[in-house]
Structures are given as structure tokens and as C-alpha cells.
């Protein structure tokens, strides 16, 4: 075995370890997002259908981007932008909100494991 072989073996093993961790850390991939906003019915969004979603709130428009099974806030008229900083959401049970604009986001798996969330 020469040095290149050892490096290839090492990288391969690292890849496997990474993949095992990635695959088996406890989270279920989200299949749907529930977007709730003031007064409106809950919007059920398919995360496997790439799209831009605009939701009206009292401060203005909150914009979501759906891309390849994940969703994020890309714009919202709130002061702190906590919702935007929360980044991508893709695991079932993830929850994020833009409370100033009264919009919440909740991710559910394809086998919806619960009816409501206590937080």
C-alpha cells in the first residue's frame, strides 16, 4: 500500500462515518410545512415542490423559499430578523416563527407524528 492508497482509505472511512452520523442522528425528514398566519387558514406546503411563498401579515409580506425538501424565511418585515437567521428547516418538528408579523412555520414528516405542539 502506498501513501495515496492510505489517504484514499482514510478519506473513504471518514466519508462513511460522516454518512452514518448524518443518516442516524435522530431526525425525520420533513415532508410538509404548515405556514400559519393571522386569520388565514393554515397553508400546507409540499417541501418537495420548489417554490416561493408569500404570506401577508400585519407588518407586510413574509416570504418563504422552498428548495429540495427544505424551507427558509427569506424576507420578513420584522425588526430582529430572528426568523431569517434561523436558516433552513428540513426536519419534522422544526418550528420557527416571525411573531411580529404573526406568521409561524412548522415542519411535519410524511407520517405526521402528532396533532399539536406544546411549546
Amino acid at each position: 500500500m502506498n501513501r495515496t492508497d492510505l489517504i484514499i482509505l482514510g478519506l473513504s472511512l471518514a466519508l462513511i462515518v460522516g454518512l452514518f452520523i448524518r443518516t442516524f442522528h435522530p431526525h425525520e425528514d420533513g415532508a410538509y410545512a404548515y405556514i400559519r398566519s393571522d386569520g388565514a387558514s393554515v397553508q400546507r406546503v409540499d417541501l418537495h415542490h420548489d417554490q416561493i411563498i408569500r404570506v401577508k401579515g400585519p407588518l407586510g409580506e413574509t416570504v418563504f423559499e422552498v428548495n429540495a425538501g427544505k424551507i427558509r424565511f427569506i424576507n420578513s418585515p420584522c425588526p430582529n430578523k430572528i426568523c431569517i437567521h434561523s436558516g433552513w428547516h428540513d426536519a419534522a418538528g422544526d418550528f420557527a416563527a416571525c411573531l411580529p408579523n404573526r406568521v409561524t412555520l412548522e415542519i411535519k414528516g410524511s407520517t405526521s407524528s402528532y396533532d399539536s405542539l406544546s411549546y
Partner: peptide, 15 residues
């Protein structure tokens, strides 16, 4: 320019 040996090539090919 890496010049792997048989085992290196085999690993790459199998994966």
C-alpha cells in the same frame, strides 16, 4: 499525479 496502487484504485472504483 496521485499514482495510487491497486488498493487505492480498487477503493475508488468500488465506491
Amino acid at each position: 499525479p496521485l499514482k495510487p496502487g491497486p488498493i487505492g484504485y480498487s477503493l475508488v472504483a468500488a465506491q
